[in-house]
Amino acid sequence: MNRDEIYAKLTEIFKENLDLDEIELTDETTADDVEGWDSLAHIGLIAAIEQEFGFRFAMKEVVNLHNVGEMVDLILQKIG
């Protein structure tokens, strides 16, 4: 799976979990940029990503994910 494919999947997960019609994710997107990405949505996103890609995040990863770019890097590393 390459970055673009991961992005496509992530966009779907975000839309579904945050109840948004449109969202554009970039490497620099952070929780502050996305409507409704708060502590409640975060846990849903994490769970959905884990289910979709089939791996577990470690605690330090849950705490230290600063933007979507880092999230994609991590997913690539985990499934690679």
Partner: peptide, 14 residues
Amino acid sequence: FRDYLFLPLQRALS
């Protein structure tokens, strides 16, 4: 509190 209590707790529950 977020890094050392809230997130780990929420995670453990989930």
